[in-house]
């Protein structure tokens, strides 16, 4: 494939992962109580840590999402985005295997749901897909329409 096609694939990966992170962070940052409670619902960490995660995660998601959409520090941002997705997959899988019935809280609105309303597989597959997009960018951070490109051009 020509480099330009690969750059275009990279652009799509950047926008998909970036926009999802931006939206997820934005929906949570307006309801921090709900965000903290969604972390509590995983029953994985103590309250203080749950509150720290619930409050800081949306900020990090928004920042990484914005950097990816801009194409700024693409490789580093994509690495953080990928790691986030892997942690989410681990958390959701853990909730699933422990028999909890919760919404992942990925886009706010977390917490317990009826057992027949859980969507663990769907949530895990979505996050794995996003992790793949992130991995692509870690491996090949050069993309179309990225601020990174402008920065480098201005420096040679």
């Amino acid at each position: 494939m020509s480099p330009r096609v690969l750059d275009a694939v990279g652009l799509v990966a950047r926008l998909v992962l970036g926009v999802v992170l931006l939206v997820a962070g934005w929906l949570k940052v307006g309801d921090l109580t709900g965000s903290v409670q969604a972390v509590v619902a995983y029953e994985l960490v103590g309250y203080e840590l749950a509150r720290f995660i619930g409050v800081t995660l949306p900020v990090v998601e928004i920042a990484v999402g914005a950097l990816l959409v801009l194409g700024l520090f693409t490789r580093a941002s994509a690495l953080v985005g990928t790691l986030l997705m892997l942690v989410f997959v681990a958390g959701i899988a853990s909730a699933w295997t422990r028999g909890l019935a919760i919404d992942c809280g990925c886009f706010g609105d977390g917490g317990p749901v009826d057992p027949e309303d859980t969507r663990y597989l769907e949530e895990i597959l979505r996050d794995i897909g996003l992790a793949v997009a992130g991995l692509w960018l870690v491996a090949r951070p050069h993309t179309l329409a990225a601020v990174d490109t402008l920065l480098r051009r201005g420096r040679t």
Binding site: L32, R51, F52, V55, T56, V59, V60, A63, V64, L67, L72, F73, A76, L151, R152, G154, R155, T156
Partner: peptide, 29 residues
């Protein structure tokens, strides 16, 4: 190269993001 190295700008950005996150955390504590 003109201006500070990209690595430095990236590191500063990362520190800023972490700082904002911690500030928000402290503010809603």
């Amino acid at each position: 190269p003109s201006g500070p190295p990209l690595g430095l700008i990236g590191a500063v950005t990362a520190v800023l993001v972490a700082l904002v996150a911690v500030l928000v955390y402290l503010a809603v504590r």
